[in-house]
Structure formats: structure tokens, C-alpha cells
């Protein structure tokens, strides 16, 4: 397992390196000078020059890049340009909110996805399977902004049982926090849960049709055990890979869901940072997201190998 990790590490680092280049260059392509927008419309050229100097914008680009990466490696993210405060604090606050939302959604994805998958593949009654099929198609197709509006209409406007937006941290006030978390997490989770469910259903159906299940059936193994001990372990590895990819998608989707439910997370921060040309915030934020994505892939790969003995022994 350790060897496997070591073998994967170089390519993961390479992706991060390339991503940092791309992020840095893209931001420099954005039209407009942060110093000008920071100084305000009435500022004279010397004020702008002073700001440029303070922020190090006059340095050659390669040097700016080295400073940025150097700061990241030493843990010094520096101050934000425009939003105010330290970049690390801004990202820290946003990260807490986004992680909370993503983990909440991930929980929904796993629970709903497993339910969709197992019921869809093995439910005896036809109408149960049909219902699962319709729900999966719906959850997969309908975009989060539609489900978001529908959820708010139902739970906040009609039933008035859950708030329509905002956030209270689950850590400081668990019961209230969960109420605020439920709708956005569900809204974020539905498409991924549907994909996971569909994959799991296909995987289980395929595994149940395999020769080895026939072997076990002929040996008198109980159907319940056929499902959980023989078919499911074979259906899981691709689903784990998918779950890893979906975690990345959840992070991306969080940007939208945060906008719908006024959830003060990284998405909101990214939006602010981009419109106000706050390089440090946006750079660090994007690199952080890519890092999380790469890490998740890495973990996924290891779990996959652990689940599949054929790869484990390779």
C-alpha cells in the first residue's frame, strides 16, 4: 500500500504544479489592474504606483510566482488585496462552511445512492424498482437550481419547517445548524446520489449475472448472502472511484448551491475575489480546491486497490 502511494505521488505533484501555473497565468490574463480598482476611481497615479509597489505587482511575473509558492510552502498566505483581512483567515472561514456543506452532501450521497442502487437492483416488487428508476432519472436530470427552488418552496414557504437560506455552524449549535444544512446539502447531493445509485445498481446487476454467483447459487448459498458477500464486493470498486470523482463535483457544485442558499462558503469567496481582482485570495482558493480534488483521487485510488485483490497484489 505504501509503495502504491509512493508510485502515485509524483504524478499527483505534477498535476498540482501545472495547475498552479495555469491558475497564476489565468489571473494575470484577467483584464484590469488590481491596484487601480483597489485605489478607487479618484486616486492619482502616484497612489496607484504606491499600491503597486506595496503589493509587489511591479516585480517580474516569474518572481511573483516564486513569492506566491514560497509563501504557500512556508504557511504565509499574506494579506488579501481588496476584501480585507488575512487571506488565510478568509479561506479558513469559507473552508469551514464549504466542508460542512460538502460533508453533509456526501452523507446524503452515500445513503441515498446505496438505497437507490440496492433497491433498484434487488427489490422484488416491480413498482419499487420503477419508483427508484423514476427518482434516479429525475434527480440526475434536474439541475440543482431547480431542485433548490422546489425544496425552498416546499419546506420553507409551504411547510415552513426549514429556513430558506443562511448558515449556523453545526459545531457551535448542532440542532439549529442541521436545520440550515439540510436543504442545501440535499440539493447539492441529489445528482451525485443518482449517479452513484445508477452505477451501484448496474454493478450489482452485472455481478449477480456473473458466473461466480451462479457457482455460489449452485452451492446452495442464500440469496441475501449472494448479494452482500458475493456480488456487492465486486460492484464496489468502480463505485468508490466514482464517489471520489463525485466528491470533486460536490466541491464544484457547492459554488452554485451556496449562491442559492446564501451559504457563506468558498464559492461566495471565489465570486467576490474574482469580481474584485483579489489575486491572493483567488489563487490560493483555486489551488486549494485542486489540491483537495487531487487528494481525493489519491485516496480513492488507494481504497480501490484495497478493495480489489487483483490490483492489491499487482
Amino acid at each position: 500500500m505504501g509503495i502504491r502511494l509512493l508510485r502515485r505521488l509524483p504524478s499527483a505533484l505534477l498535476v498540482l504544479l501545472v495547475a498552479s501555473f495555469v491558475i497564476f497565468s489565468i489571473l494575470r490574463l484577467v483584464p484590469g489592474d488590481p491596484a487601480t480598482s483597489l485605489a478607487g476611481p479618484d486616486a492619482g497615479p502616484e497612489t496607484v504606483a504606491a499600491i503597486r509597489d506595496r503589493l509587489g505587482l511591479d516585480e517580474p511575473l516569474p518572481l511573483q510566482y516564486v513569492h506566491w509558492i514560497g509563501g504557500l510552502l512556508t504557511g504565509d498566505l499574506g494579506p488579501s488585496y481588496a476584501i480585507g483581512g488575512q487571506t488565510a483567515d478568509l479561506i479558513g472561514d469559507g473552508l469551514g462552511a464549504t466542508v460542512e456543506l460538502t460533508l453533509g452532501a456526501l452523507l446524503f450521497v452515500v445513503v441515498l445512492g446505496t438505497a437507490f442502487g440496492v433497491l433498484g437492483a434487488t427489490a422484488r416488487r416491480g413498482w419499487v424498482r420503477a419508483t427508484v428508476r423514476v427518482l434516479t432519472t429525475g434527480a440526475l436530470a434536474v439541475p440543482p437550481f431547480v431542485t433548490g427552488v422546489l425544496l425552498v418552496l416546499l419546506f420553507a414557504v409551504v411547510l415552513k419547517v426549514l429556513p430558506s437560506g443562511g448558515r449556523v455552524s453545526v459545531l457551535t449549535a448542532p440542532d439549529l445548524g442541521v436545520q440550515y444544512l439540510l436543504l442545501p446539502a440535499l440539493c447539492l447531493a441529489l445528482p451525485s446520489a443518482a449517479i452513484l445509485g445508477r452505477y451501484l445498481k448496474d454493478g450489482i446487476e452485472r455481478a449477480l449475472a456473473e458466473d461466480y454467483v451462479r457457482t455460489a447459487t449452485a452451492a446452495g448459498v442464500h440469496p441475501r448472502r449472494l448479494l452482500w458477500r458475493h456480488a456487492l464486493p465486486n460492484a464496489l470498486p468502480p463505485v468508490v472511484t466514482l464517489l471520489g470523482m463525485q466528491t470533486g463535483h460536490l466541491l464544484g457544485g457547492a459554488v452554485l448551491v451556496e449562491a442559492i442558499f446564501a451559504w457563506p462558503g468558498l464559492g461566495q469567496l471565489a465570486e467576490q475575489g474574482l469580481t474584485r481582482r483579489d489575486y491572493p485570495v483567488v489563487q490560493d482558493l483555486l489551488l486549494l480546491l485542486v489540491t483537495v480534488f487531487v487528494l481525493v483521487q489519491l485516496i480513492t485510488d488507494l481504497v480501490h486497490a484495497w478493495l480489489d485483490p487483483r490490483i492489491r497484489w499487482e
Binding site: G248, H249, G252, G253, V255, L289, F293
Partner: peptide, 17 residues
């Protein structure tokens, strides 16, 4: 690389440019 960037972040970046 394209897939490593969350799609909507990409949207924000493209619009910023």
C-alpha cells in the same frame, strides 16, 4: 486538468477574463 477544476469555478474564471 480541465476536469480537475470544478466546472463552475472555471465558469467564474472565464467570465472574469
Amino acid at each position: 486538468l480541465v476536469l480537475a477544476f470544478p466546472g463552475l469555478i472555471l465558469a467564474l474564471a472565464v467570465t472574469a477574463i
